[in-house]
Design a protein around this nucleic acid. Structure first.
Length: 269
DNA sequence: CCTGAGATACACT
DNA sequence: GTGTATCTCAGGT
């Protein structure tokens, strides 16, 4: 019946049951919604994104990266097989794989292919299309993951030195996860099932909506960002000209601070 | 605009 | 012990 132009319709699981490098470009323009619990008794998917999303955030994806499975993609977390951390990537498609990195950041992926394959798409950047205030609060360090915005009654925000611009709210994978309130506890949740008010979920649900894909001619691809291996594989995809696409950063090997980088130069007491 | 460097916790070898 | 699918600030251009 529907013409497929409804931006509020959740994507089916079959959408993700494909190789990650095929899913990745198709995810551009789609909308990831998290939170907004109680968005409606009939299921949250038909909440008005422009105005009516209360207590949640929605991001239209503008940049993604595909990661392959064991033995085929040296840059993937699953390259050397299953571990406790990457277990979700070996699970069913359409679930969120959220991992912790650099000691302080979370990044969110969507799992591809059937159980056992271990591939996913990293969500690198997007445009916040609803819930700007809550996203900005989280990005300023003022709101816990998945939580709603506290009322502005008690006092000033912890550090409101500089207001984060709309453009930068979800520009970068860790910024996107923060803006959406995605963290450790959301690892493994299903992003294809519509939110069910009757279900007893540990936290607010996340759903990928059909959104508004860009003209095919606007999709660009190139090498992935920040990885030390497989630098040639052009599995980063973005919408050309979109201001929310993150700046490209080649990998820089981190040197250990001053000490112990090399035996010869190490200062000896 | 650009560059460099520090911060930080955890998974894996 | 080592390396990280990053971000933010400081400072120069």
């Amino acid at each position: 019946m529907g013409l497929g132009l409804l931006t509020t319709e959740p994507l089916p699981r079959s959408f993700f049951d494909r190789p990650s490098h095929e899913v990745a470009p198709d995810l551009l323009g789609r909308v990831l919604v998290h939170g907004g619990s109680g968005g409606g008794p009939g299921g949250g998917a038909d909440c008005g994104l422009a105005d009516g999303l209360v207590g949640g955030v929605a991001v239209r994806l503008t940049e993604v990266e595909a990661y392959g499975g064991p033995g085929e993609d040296p840059a993937a977390h699953t390259y050397r097989g299953p571990t406790p951390r990457n277990a979700v990537m070996f699970g069913p498609p359409g679930h969120l794989y959220v991992y912790f990195t650099y000691g302080m950041h979370f990044c969110a992926n969507l799992v591809c292919l059937p159980e056992g394959h271990g591939s996913a798409v990293l969500l690198r950047a997007g445009e916040v299309v609803a819930g700007h205030d809550l996203a900005r609060l989280r990005r300023s360090g003022g709101a816990p993951a998945g939580g709603a915005a506290p009322d502005g009654d008690g006092g000033p925000p912890p550090r409101a030195a500089r207001r984060v611009s709309d453009r930068d709210l979800a520009r970068g994978p860790a910024r996107l996860a923060t803006a959406l309130g995605l963290a450790r506890e959301h690892n493994g949740i299903d992003a294809t099932a519509p939110r069910d008010p009757a279900a007893h979920l540990p936290g607010p649900a996340a759903v990928v909506l059909a959104g508004s894909p860009p003209e095919p001619g606007l999709i660009r691809s190139g090498p992935r960002t920040g990885i030390s291996t497989a630098k040639e594989t052009p599995w980063r995809f973005w919408i050309d000209g979109d201001p929310t696409v993150s700046p490209y950063r080649p990998h820089v090997p981190r040197r250990r601070s001053a000490a112990a980088t090399s035996v010869g130069d190490a200062p000896r007491s």
